[in-house]
Design a protein around this nucleic acid. Sequence first.
DNA 1: CTATATTTGTCTATATCTGACAAGTCATAA
DNA 2: TTATGACTTGTCAGATATAGACAAATATAG
Lengths: 98, 98
Amino acid sequence: MNFGERIKELRESKELLQRQLAATLEIDTPMFSKIERGERRAKREQVILLAELLQADVQELLTLWLAEQIYDLVKDEGVASDALHVTEEKLKYNQNKD
Amino acid sequence: MNFGERIKELRESKELLQRQLAATLEIDTPMFSKIERGERRAKREQVILLAELLQADVQELLTLWLAEQIYDLVKDEGVASDALHVTEEKLKYNQNKD
DNA sequence: CTATATTTGTCTATATCTGACAAGTCATAA
DNA sequence: TTATGACTTGTCAGATATAGACAAATATAG
């Protein structure tokens, strides 16, 4: 499940139009369309807003949104999976610090 | 172990100067210094070159280099770890495709 | 002190993104 | 068919981010 797909799903389940959500995000409809189709990336702030508007779980949306960015970064790398694991270790290590 | 630290380690074990490696990468010494200290990010192409120059494992260096980028992307997000897992699933799924 | 290696700070050219706009498709209704 | 509303596509300008150069500062060694 991609971020955009999920947004579309939630939007349709609430029977809202792109136009309406776009207005609240203060972008135009074409831009919103691109976000839903994954052609453009939403800003973090827009994800938060969307979660409110769609009464969805912010964490879930942020996770999908972040995962998509990571995926774009690693998708063409043979070492993608290794890098993910190294990152996870680094995260654990730095969380225990301070 | 960070990418830059590893480069420095390898460089010193070979008793090479920043100036020498920088010259081959066609950047100046300050730039190289920044890469070693993680203040600036090396380009993918430069990582490949460095692996050759330092007779190091390209995969290892690419992994550290990529992991650092992922880390920068997720480090401030509460959902970081979740996003990493989602990405891994996405990777597996898309590898089986085609 | 002198010389060499490295680091710090700042500036610019370039590349990359965001969003707007115009025009297009598609579906449905009259 | 024509009209209308929802969405998509293509392109461009402005904003933002980034790589790299340069000058100057700070080690470190002799």
